[in-house]
């Protein structure tokens, strides 16, 4: 005898309460701010979509957004192939494998603002090892004065900080491929490139999807490292979206436009994650005849 009722919903209730407090309530607060002009606790005006209109026309947002896209795509283009290459080159077993894993994991264990500080010193042309080296090679390098140098430094810093993550994910994915696949490919007479293209890459699809999503989201929200390293400069050349937002919200205390900005920011991340997800899922089916 099976009784049917809705009691199962009670089991979901604690999670719902938790999510409500951690996500839904704060998000709705932001929504609330984004449609009102608030002067004081009892003094507020409903402004509709005005903040959204203002923010979308604001060239700080537009420029920040452009920089952000260039940065995030550059990061993906460098870190994903590099991470795969590192994973392929890593020893698979033995003590050397453990050692490599520890060394690779090191940058991931450093707090983000410390990473910024490390590179701020490392890149200095007077006392930093990196800066001195580059200058000695005859390059006129100064990340604090030259926008190109600043960009290069931020990119290299991020690659140093996060390629390990991609490599570790790919390494675990590669380890999961049974040896029989390699044997079968060998018997088929497949070249090393064919093994990579038709065995390893398809088998890595799922971890690569996670790597791309994580790296996209994280790089799209990057704040601490460039904030510490360049402070967004020189000029605004390395001011990414979250820093623009922080200036607007904390610096100028424009909570209405900042709230509208946050929501647009959030939706962009959501949209791109969805795009990556669907295209990568499609890609796996790509090489059919």
């Amino acid at each position: 005898m099976k009784t049917e009722n809705n009691r199962a919903w009670f089991l979901v209730l604690p999670v719902f309460a938790l999510v409500a407090f951690s996500a839904i309530v704060p998000l709705m607060t932001v929504v609330n701010y984004s449609v009102q002009d608030i002067f004081g606790p009892d003094d507020r005006v409903f402004v509709g979509a005005e903040w959204y209109r203002e923010i979308l026309q604001d060239d700080r947002l537009q420029q920040g957004l452009l920089r952000q896209f260039v940065f995030s795509f550059a990061i993906l283009l460098i870190e994903i192939p590099l991470g795969i290459a590192v994973a392929l080159a890593m020893p698979r077993r033995g003590r050397l494998a453990s050692l490599t894993l520890v060394v690779l994991a090191l940058p991931l264990l450093i707090p983000w603002n410390v990473v910024g500080t490390i590179w701020q010193i490392f890149g200095r042309a007077d006392i930093g090892l990196g800066g001195v080296l580059v200058t000695a090679l005859g390059v006129d390098y100064n990340y604090a004065a030259n926008p190109f140098d600043a960009w290069a430094t931020v990119l290299v810093m991020d690659v140093w900080h996060w390629t390990s993550l991609v490599a570790l994910l790919c390494f675990s994915g590669l380890k999961a491929i049974p040896d029989a696949y390699y044997q079968a490919a060998k018997i088929d007479g497949a070249s090393a490139w064919a093994v990579f293209r038709f065995v390893q890459l398809p088998k890595l699809k799922n971890v690569l999807l996670i790597a791309v999503l994580l790296r996209f989201m994280d790089s799209f929200m990057i704040y601490s490292e460039p904030f510490v390293l360049t402070g967004g400069g020189p000029g605004n050349s390395t001011t990414f979206l979250s820093q623009t937002l922080a200036r607007l919200a904390v610096g100028q205390f424009d909570l209405g436009p900042a709230a509208a900005f946050s929501l647009i920011y959030f939706l962009i991340i959501l949209l791109f994650c969805w795009l990556f997800y669907t295209t990568m899922m499609q890609l796996g089916r790509g090489s059919q005849q």
Partner: peptide
Amino acid sequence: VRRRNVAMVYQQFINYPNF
């Protein structure tokens, strides 16, 4: 191996995943 004209089948189901 590739010059021996051998075929092999394994315990695991080994096929090219995206073919």
